[in-house]
Amino acid sequence: MTQTLLHIDSSARGTGSTSRQLSDRIVTQLAPAQVIRRDLADPLPQITEPWIGANFTPAADRDAAQRDLLALSDTLVDELRAADTIVIGTPIYNFTIPASLKAWIDLVCRVGLTFEYTPEGPRGLLAGKRVILAVASGGTQVGSEIDFATGYLRHVLGFIGLDEVQIIAADRLVQDMDAALVAANAQIDALAA
């Protein structure tokens, strides 16, 4: 049973967003005990040179300004750590993910916190969590050669240890919206908590 669920939405659309509707249905279907909500329509900052400098300064050596620069990133990492299940609603914009979701990824992929380097290569530190992607696209078929969103998300999430990723897609909505929504909703109905 899902105890704590992190629910992330990245569509720029507040209303009328298919990915938001799908992610909401997934959360309802899973009925977690606690939901942590992160709406990326509220823009996150881009990483900057001072942020990178703070990130690569050992924690014990950071000054107050550097700690302030990393505070949001620390919160986002804490949200990931607290969650048993992560639901990410994302549209496909121009064949890939929205910039808001990329900003979130940049803020949570942190050496020593969500991954580490070993003699065998990088190792994710967030293993044992379930991820469900609620993906919507107007014309891009999920899994096709022009879908640069879902392959990237699987890769980067796996990089931080989140390798149990399930995709629920309502794709090619402009071709047959009704069929795409029926298929996605059937997958949601079949989800086990």
Results as ranks from 00 to 15, higher is better:
residue 138 G to R: 14
residue 156 V to E: 10
residue 114 T to N: 15
residue 3 Q to V: 01
residue 138 G to K: 15
residue 129 K to F: 02
residue 183 A to V: 00
residue 138 G to Y: 12
residue 100 S to D: 11
residue 3 Q to D: 05
residue 30 L to F: 14
residue 114 T to R: 12
residue 135 V to I: 13
residue 124 G to M: 13
residue 22 L to F: 00
residue 22 L to S: 00
residue 84 D to Y: 11
residue 153 L to G: 14
residue 129 K to W: 03
residue 7 H to R: 07
residue 74 D to G: 01
residue 97 I to Q: 05
residue 142 V to Q: 09
residue 68 D to S: 11
residue 149 A to I: 01
residue 100 S to C: 10
residue 130 R to C: 04
residue 157 L to I: 07
residue 177 M to L: 12
residue 187 Q to I: 10
residue 77 V to P: 12
residue 185 N to R: 10
residue 101 L to S: 02
residue 143 G to D: 10
residue 178 D to I: 06
residue 45 P to N: 07
residue 133 L to G: 09
residue 152 Y to E: 06
residue 46 Q to D: 14
residue 17 S to R: 04
residue 112 G to N: 08
residue 189 D to K: 02
residue 160 I to W: 06
residue 18 T to K: 09
residue 74 D to V: 01
residue 186 A to T: 03
residue 41 A to W: 13
residue 26 I to T: 01
residue 21 Q to K: 05
residue 12 A to M: 04
residue 163 D to G: 01
residue 171 D to C: 04
residue 45 P to G: 03
residue 78 D to M: 09
residue 15 T to V: 14
residue 56 F to I: 04
residue 38 R to K: 12
residue 108 V to C: 08
residue 15 T to A: 15
residue 40 L to T: 04
residue 167 I to Q: 13
residue 153 L to F: 03
residue 83 A to S: 15
residue 87 V to R: 03
residue 29 Q to V: 05
residue 174 V to K: 15
residue 82 A to C: 11
residue 72 L to V: 02
residue 36 I to W: 08
residue 99 A to P: 11
residue 64 A to N: 12
residue 4 T to Y: 00
residue 133 L to A: 12
residue 143 G to C: 10
residue 44 L to Y: 15
residue 149 A to E: 10
residue 30 L to G: 07
residue 46 Q to C: 08
residue 94 N to S: 11
residue 38 R to S: 10
residue 74 D to M: 02
residue 155 H to D: 13
residue 34 Q to M: 12
residue 80 L to A: 00
residue 103 A to N: 05
residue 154 R to S: 10
residue 40 L to P: 13
residue 58 P to N: 02
residue 110 R to W: 10
residue 62 R to D: 11
residue 163 D to P: 00
residue 162 L to H: 13
residue 56 F to A: 01
residue 22 L to M: 00
residue 109 C to K: 10
residue 120 E to L: 01
residue 173 L to N: 06
residue 94 N to T: 02
residue 100 S to I: 06
residue 59 A to F: 07
residue 39 D to S: 14
residue 176 D to A: 09
residue 160 I to V: 15
residue 2 T to I: 08
residue 102 K to T: 00
residue 152 Y to L: 12
residue 176 D to V: 04
residue 5 L to R: 02
residue 131 V to G: 12
residue 72 L to F: 04
residue 168 I to T: 05
residue 33 A to D: 08
residue 121 G to P: 15
